[in-house]
Computed example of a mutant assay.
Amino acid sequence: MKNYKTVGAEEAFEITIQKSRFIGHVCPVATEAEANDFIERIRKKHWHATHNVPIFLIGADYAVQRYSDDGEPSGTAGIPVMEMLKKEGITDICLVITRYFGGIKLGTGGLVRAYTDSAKAVLESVGVIEKRVYQSVDMVFDYTLHGKIQNYCMNQAPVIVADTSFSDRVCMQLRIEPESYDQVIAQIIDMTANKVEMGEPEQMYLTFKENQLIEI
């Protein structure tokens, strides 16, 4: 697992360049089938458009990547958008850039800029989110240790307290940045004289937007 960026919702955003309308459509996808369904839906909606340029990337390592220029000169539409997404580290995403020709030819360089600008505009509109890998671990301990452990965790930037429940003992669920995991656990064990029961850690994704945690 590795950190990556994506989008969390569908969005459409239109810009006009030299009288041509460019409508960027974006959707989060997890499979090639989902991407193809989204592309087909946009093509049906804009069946009378001059071009519907599809691009999608799936997987943190871009295991699946597809694009088409959909009738635009080769290399002026799909591939520059795909390369922009990869440069930004964005994946699990499908884009369809719809163009209604306005009568003015843009030239090769103009088309590249227009399609990438349209993609950037819809991404800015929807807001890119970041999926960050964390280690998830459950800890169980006596009430007498709760204040000490909570204060420690609340003052450690790499640590997020996801949940705390109380019964005969305290159960705390932590999310810890992988590179800090060993150090954090060692410090908790040390400060409690090894009186904390630790579960097996598991990797998971947390969702951030503009560096703010939005989903645990």
Rank of each mutant, 00 (worst) to 15 (best):
V137Y: 11
H146A: 13
G8V: 09
S136T: 13
R21W: 13
A35E: 04
N3G: 03
R43Y: 09
T116V: 15
V112P: 02
C27G: 02
S118G: 01
V140G: 06
V122P: 10
T164N: 00
C171H: 13
V7W: 05
F13P: 06
G102F: 09
D61W: 04
D142G: 01
F208T: 05
E202C: 12
Y4H: 14
S125F: 12
R43L: 05
G199H: 08
F208W: 15
A60P: 04
E124R: 15
Y100A: 01
G8D: 14
I42Y: 15
T31P: 00
L174Q: 10
F38Q: 08
Y100S: 03
M1C: 07
I17Y: 13
W47Q: 14
S125M: 10
M198C: 14
L213R: 02
A162I: 02
V133Q: 07
Q156H: 03
D37Q: 14
Y181C: 00
K131V: 01
N3W: 08
S74N: 05
R41N: 13
Y115M: 01
T98N: 09
K2R: 14
K148H: 10
F208N: 06
T91D: 09
R175H: 15
I42A: 14
K5N: 13
F141P: 03
S136F: 11
E32F: 02
D138H: 07
M139P: 01
R99K: 07
E197W: 08
E11D: 00
A193P: 01
P201W: 10
M154R: 14
I90Y: 11
M198S: 11
M84P: 02
T76A: 09
K105L: 15
V26A: 04
N211Q: 15
Q156V: 02
P80D: 07
C153F: 09
